[in-house]
Design a protein around this nucleic acid. Structure first.
Lengths: 152, 152
DNA sequence: CTACATGCAAACCCTTTGCAGGCTG
DNA sequence: CAGCCTGCAAAGGGTTTGCATGTAG
């Protein structure tokens, strides 16, 4: 348990170091935004990040959230999930490495273990002469909680 | 070859019959839109469908295309691909059954064979108590044509 | 005559951008 | 003082909606 917390903290520190190295500044808001994206296992949307940052920094604007998330995306530190056609969700870890399980009812998004699909994408791609760059897997279903709710 | 054409034609006929059964009318424009979505293997966007319909029906508006595609989506006859965060692509066949291979360079989208992943999604989902409803797989890479182009 | 179909324009949502002012190094 | 950071408001792109008109059954 403490290990996981430590891993995330290290990740945040690394990101901040890279940030600095690229000539960007580390501000309290940015710290908070990065924190939310990495700590939060819920793959938040920009709006959700925005609301959370505002708990601590009420003056924060959406533009700042968008801009910071844009930087992190360009740095390859977070990835964008195109789960639905409305707003994008963001994953603080590499989304190509693990599938996502989405509840069609409450929209909960949970991470599945890495490498469930092994070499399958590589083999599938080679047949078509493609060079593999990544793969995204989204599985849809109904979560246990929503199954319960639908019974009553 | 002729088989494939026949399969698609049957599919179009079935959709039209369902359309009628639901109380909707079959108009030349709608015929054309359904035709494009089913015949076209390129997973077109609304804009692309719009442009194509306009070849035959220059007065067609975007709204009509959106509304017709909306109906087909609700009927479960076509599926929406959230490949990128910009405009949606539409697949005339069940997208849960086959992965898509997308070229990061020219944005070509091709269908891979069905069932590449077998029972993997089912197993992954059961561990979390979910009821499986579907899964979407998108694999990204560089297609042979773009590999050639980048060499020169 | 009722109900659906169409085109237009406006509204909407999410995201990006430009700009003026503020702050950091 | 150069350059990044912020908030605001405006613009942008894709999609949806309301309404008046048209048309099929």
């Amino acid at each position: 348990m403490d290990d996981k917390v430590q891993v995330k903290q290290n990740r945040i520190d690394n990101i901040m170091t890279r940030f600095k190295g690229l000539g960007y500044r580390i501000t309290p808001q940015r710290m908070a935004i990065v924190d939310i994206l990495i700590q939060d296992a819920n793959h938040p949307t920009v709006e959700q990040v925005y609301q959370k940052v505002r708990n601590d920094f009420p003056m924060t604007s959406r533009a700042t959230v968008y801009k910071t998330i844009g930087l992190l995306k360009d740095m390859g530190e977070i990835s964008e999930l195109n789960i639905s056609n409305s707003s994008s969700h963001y994953d603080g870890f590499n989304s190509e490495k693990h599938p996502h399980l989405v509840c069609n009812c409450c929209n909960e998004i949970i991470d599945l273990a890495e490498d469930v699909f092994g070499q399958v994408p590589q083999e599938a791609v080679q047949q078509h002469g493609y060079i593999l760059q990544g793969h995204y897997v989204t599985i849809y279903g109904i979560c246990p909680k929503c199954q319960e709710l639908s019974k009553s």
